[in-house]
Amino acid sequence: MLKFTEEHEWLQIDGDIATVGITTHAAEQLGDLVFVELPEVGGTHAKGGDAATVESVKAASDVFCPLDGEIVEINEAIVTDPSLVNSDPQGAGWFFKLKLANRSDADALLDEAAYKELVG
């Protein structure tokens, strides 16, 4: 199940695990990324809290945790090579895997059609 947030994150939900990244639209808007800071595995985050930080050549932006949950895996590849987020934001450029506190919370997120409408 693919879901989106209004903060331009995508979630690929498989059971109670959501793989989270930023959308192609977000990656285009940010421009070339030069730095990614990911959360620690094992940490619990509340929906809307800061989970990661990305920096483009010009500016820093926060990536918010899309739902309540625990970080179970992070993508070290984007820390080593932040350009992966620009080249494949909704694939190899994923950020972290989140074990959802409540699977049903995901129902309230946007589906692909609704997200596409949001970004025009």
């Binding site: 421009g31 070339d32 030069v34 483009s56 050549v57 010009k58 350009s83 620009n86």
Partner: peptide, 11 residues
């Protein structure tokens, strides 16, 4: 602020 090539390539 940038063209399609992006800031890194332009630099």
């Amino acid at each position: 602020v940038q063209y399609p090539a992006g800031v890194l390539k332009e630099h």
